[in-house]
């Protein structure tokens, strides 16, 4: 699995380098840096970032403005944002949390605390995304069961009609019989698959947007 990427946004090169160094030494994270809100947005548009650590105050930028722009493209689950702030910035912290920040860390940054908070938010994001996928699978499951049931009835009728004199023609009769029993077999396999309830998301969709049936 590829490393998680943290984006540090701070106009102070001193603070950026320090946090970068500490996170690299204390964790298995990749770190990239931005010195401004604009550079932050540029990086986010160019590459995958898993979490943003952002200083609450930068020249020409208010933290909430950058937050708003980030949240237009990424929700709080897709991209957790932790604000870095000093103790006296309480009202700014509230504004940022209301605008979409997930959390904040107070300066001086205690590096062990920072790493723990980052890990927690990365894990939460991962679990939330997994929950969404499971909900999708459950909806898909219900849909498949419904369609199976809806197909079974007319299929039984069609198979029953094969004995009618209309289908006496051997060649046509054989083709129809073969096709209908093939449909019946696929319906049965889909029923078995949905009953298993252990299918990975990839087996449902993969790259072909079809269920894999062996």
């Amino acid at each position: 699995m590829s490393k998680k990427i943290i984006l540090i946004v701070d106009d102070s090169e001193f603070d950026r380098k320090l946090l970068h160094g500490a996170l690299t030494k204390k964790s298995d994270l990749d770190v990239v840096e931005a010195s401004s809100g604009d550079q932050c947005l540029q990086i986010l548009s160019q590459q995958r970032v898993d979490l943003v650590l952002m200083d609450i105050m930068m020249p020409g930028t208010i933290g909430t403005q950058v937050l708003t722009k980030i949240r237009e493209k990424f929700n709080a689950i897709e991209l957790p944002i932790i604000m870095v702030t000093s103790k006296a910035d309480a009202s700014d912290v509230v504004s940022c949390l209301q605008t979409g920040a997930n959390d904040y860390i107070a300066k001086p940054v205690h590096f062990d605390v920072a790493v723990s908070r980052i890990s927690t938010h990365l894990k939460l994001a991962e679990l939330s995304q997994e929950m969404s996928r499971l909900k999708e699978m459950a909806a898909l499951d219900a849909m498949v069961i419904t369609y199976n049931h809806q197909i079974n009835n007319p299929l039984a009728i069609a198979l029953g009609c094969l004995n009618e004199p209309l289908f006496v023609d051997q060649v046509m009769g054989e083709k129809l019989t073969s096709s209908l029993w093939r449909i019946a077999d696929i319906v049965k396999k889909i029923t078995v698959l949905t009953e298993k309830k252990e299918i990975e998301y990839q087996q449902y969709l993969g790259t072909s947007k079809m269920i894999k049936i062996s």
């Binding site: 102070s12 001193f14 320090l18 200083d55 105050m57 000093s86 001086p108 940054v109």
Partner: peptide, 15 residues
Amino acid sequence: ELSAHTLKGVLSNFF
């Protein structure tokens, strides 16, 4: 405000 904020942040790293 900005320059003092930056200085304050740097100083905080040394407690």
